[in-house]
């Protein structure tokens, strides 16, 4: 069926999947789980290091998704949609634990941890180089938001519009967050030394 082999149709595979899921197709649900469960799990553990806790959240998230499937909207990008909904859920779950806090409040101080390649390298090799240590300190100082934007941009390879949606921030804020972080890094010219270690 050469007729169907075109980029556009392949892209809309996720639309087909979503429609089938909404129609109650169990195979579609199973396919959706296989594709997106790992993505959501690895995103979730950035917010909450306890993996079992994230797994429980994901369980309830997907069960609820299934039960509400008929009322769900059509989505353009399934991955971004799921990341966004799950992000909301996990932040809400966390706020329940700290019941006295407002959600908005919590969102300001939410936790998001990533470990960059370079940090792992610095730690594992106990690098004492002064410049690299400075860089390490700098990376540690990246805000949670910056880390999350970098994660979504480079690890999940999403565009800024989707990142902005997921994090409920303005499009240009997402752009700025990445640009600022990159500009800082560029000033650390000695990164070149670091990169050469990997080549």
């Amino acid at each position: 069926m050469a007729l169907l082999v075109s980029d556009k149709i392949l892209v809309s595979e996720e639309e087909i999947l979503w429609q089938a899921f909404k129609a109650g197709d169990r195979n579609a649900f199973s396919q959706l789980l296989k594709t997106y469960y790992p993505i959501l799990l690895s995103y979730g553990v950035r917010f909450q290091q306890e993996k079992d806790y994230v797994k429980d959240c994901l369980h309830d998230f997907f069960v609820e998704l299934w039960n509400r499937r008929e009322n769900l909207d059509d989505v353009q990008c399934l991955k971004a949609y799921l990341l966004q909904s799950f992000r909301r859920r996990i932040l809400r779950e966390k706020s329940k634990d700290k019941w006295f806090r407002e959600i908005a409040d919590l969102d300001q101080e939410y936790c998001f941890e990533v470990q960059f390649n370079i940090e792992t390298y610095l730690i594992e090799n106990e690098v004492k180089h002064e410049h690299l240590q400075k860089l390490h300190t700098y990376l540690k100082k990246l805000s949670k938001r910056e880390q999350e934007v970098i994660y979504l941009r480079f690890y999940e390879e999403l565009d800024y519009a989707k990142i902005a949606d997921i994090m409920s921030i303005k499009n240009h804020s997402a752009v700025n967050l990445v640009h600022e972080a990159l500009k800082h890094l560029r000033n650390h010219w000695f990164l070149v030394v670091f990169a050469s270690l990997f080549n």
């Binding site: 799990l41 690895s42 480079f154 990164l191 670091f194």
Partner: peptide
């Protein structure tokens, strides 16, 4: 070279699953 260095440095470590 700078761009390459930043990309490599900013690679995020995946969680072993």
């Amino acid at each position: 070279e700078q761009a390459k260095a930043i990309i490599i440095a900013l690679e995020i470590k995946g969680i072993p699953i």
